[in-house]
Design a protein around this nucleic acid. Structure first.
Lengths: 355, 355
DNA sequence: TTGTAGGCGTTATCAC
DNA sequence: GTGATAACGCCTACAA
């Protein structure tokens, strides 16, 4: 049945199941069984079939199979359109980790970008409703929704990673943003710090809300007023982390009573902030302690090495896949929210305040 | 024909073309045409059909279409198993850029990781030979090949990005690694540097060969011996860029006649090298000039800000997609090798040698 | 244990 | 311009 010509120069990819069947001298359905349910077929015929398949270099057609069984084996990961540097650094790890886990389950990973435009939303919805995709991992807070169709009621299992969207009914894998920042802030307070400077991500963003919330909680727990912390930033997108840090350094310079400890929402903000602040003549941690969030490897090699809260991205990736695969298997909903604890990495950017 | 029950709690995704046809009061084939060849159908019926489709939230089934037309609309990007930090940083940009271009052409992007194990090779080949994939962009120097099947003769168009594989018959999009490093080295020579230190990636790797080659060429052009440059590294994978830099700093310390200029194969090597070298009491660029390759944004905020050769990744991504899309359209092979020039970013890490 | 037959949702080739 | 109808490659009752 292979319609490919033997003519030289002709495409020659694509032995069919029928070709294997003929070569092995059995029926097509037997081949199908031998490949899928090796148990339900005679040992000898199976051997013949395997031999024939190998000889022909047979590879099953995924689309035909998918059409027939009504399922694809593709998982879609939705990345936010604006990747900020901090996350940008970890995205490859996330993808690697997720992809590796998926492959072992027999799945493939497709990428989708969720920009703010309708085109990308429509595109994602086409994928979801067009049967191309079996499940979704989403790293964005917005669920695509265009004229009636919404990802939420696509019938696909969806796992949110990094952002807690369990309120919206999505399985979520997150780290303990709030708690981690709270603990770090508490530690700074313990060291004697009383005036704080917070470098913010975009106002209202989940990470910003959680992490800033952690700062406030720590202040409250220590009986300190919220006034103790100055915010900078909040208008720029995470994508511009370095710019935010630069801007924050300018803001910092204008303050009369200078804070002694800085908490940044992401590593890149801290990195550019530190760079500018040092250039302005301040020393870290002598004049100023700095800590940030993400755990970028580069922090170790800053001067001074930067303390940071490391996101357990690989574990989160694995957890997200596990959750998704579970959801694909059963109809029951497992735990809606999985928290993977972060790890605080203490480096030289933190010290007790001078005065 | 929609077999989905209206029962509450039942999955309800998936209006079929037949459903649209019935609602519009036309034949199924007419719907197909109206959606694909809007020109070849009456204006009024087309309107009816579109209305019906929208009302039902109809989305064509991609697998059915793919099976029928014998083509998928998925492009596979093969990432090297070990992403080194420098490239790791640019991967998200690359993916974004590539994905955006692809979507406009109606394609989707699937990710594959090429590790050194047979499993991942087999997986990629299954994708390629199973009709799941229409074309390939590869960022790895190794073409998957397992028992007879090789990606090279899958019949799929392949574009190599970052690495020049035009020798292997692949369309390649690269930057001018050799030339860029040659020019930078020449500039260092012009400044008066005569002793060089080169921090290498894995021995034999394309980037290492090209970039080191650039150093040598510059030396030759200036009538200087190859002995002028000391190599460090070469055994560790790019993945361990930071470690390589750390190791290089140790190596550097053991040299009797100290080089005055350092050229690193990637930014991360330079970053960790600088960190350690400064800790050892040397100053940059006072005692030592440093330049590296990649153009990571973070280099701007190192102390001192690092000079680097920036890879034009977005342009390369676009070029790769263009090439691939061309190859999908025609059978003729366009230019085998596209070079997108890099951009040298001069920062404070470079100066004339002291003595 | 194996073979026969029908269909998954779409497109393309025919007639009309 | 529109409507039947036959594939596309595979899986899965069901029959043998």
């Amino acid at each position: 049945m292979n319609k490919n010509k033997d003519v030289a120069g002709e495409e020659q990819s694509g032995a069919l199941m029928a070709d294997v069947a003929r070569l092995a001298g059995v029926a097509i359905s037997t081949v199908s069984r031998a490949l899928a349910n090796p148990g339900r077929v005679n040992e000898k015929t199976r051997a013949k079939i395997n031999a024939a398949a190998r000889q022909l270099g047979y590879t099953p057609n995924a689309m035909a199979r998918g059409l027939r069984v009504g399922k694809s084996n593709i998982i879609m990961i939705i990345l936010p359109g604006s990747l900020y540097y901090g996350v940008s650094q970890i995205i490859p790890q996330v993808l690697q980790s997720i992809n590796k886990s998926l492959i072992q389950g027999g799945y493939n990973l497709m990428i989708a970008n969720l920009d703010r435009d309708e085109l990308s939303e429509r595109h994602i919805l086409d994928l979801a409703f067009g049967g191309s995709v079996r499940g979704v991992i989403i790293l964005s807070s917005k669920l695509p929704e265009v004229d009636g169709r919404s990802l939420a009621n696509s019938g696909l299992p969806i796992v949110s990673m990094l952002l807690d969207m369990s309120d919206a009914g999505l399985l979520s894998v997150v780290t303990n943003d709030r708690e981690a920042v709270r603990d770090v802030t508490a530690e700074l307070i313990r060291l004697g710090h009383r005036r704080f400077f917070y470098i913010a991500g975009p106002e209202g963003n989940y990470h910003d809300v959680e992490r800033y919330g952690g700062v406030i909680e720590a202040l409250e727990a220590a009986g300190l007023s919220e006034e103790r912390v100055r915010r900078s930033g909040g208008h720029l997108d995470y994508q511009h982390g370095f710019d935010i840090g630069v801007q924050a350094a300018d803001d910092f310079a204008t303050l009369r009573e200078r804070p002694t400890a800085v908490i940044a929402t992401s590593d890149d903000m801290a990195i550019s902030f530190v760079s500018r602040i040092q250039r302005a003549g301040l020393s870290i941690p002598g004049d100023l302690s700095v800590v940030s969030f993400d755990g970028s490897p580069v922090c170790e090699f800053s001067s001074p090495p930067l303390s940071t809260i490391e996101q357990p991205v690989e574990e989160m990736g694995r957890a997200a896949v596990d959750l998704l695969l579970d959801a694909l298997g059963q109809t029951q909903n497992p735990t809606a929210r999985t928290v993977i604890p972060s790890r605080f990495i203490l480096r030289e950017s933190i010290a007790a305040p001078k005065n």
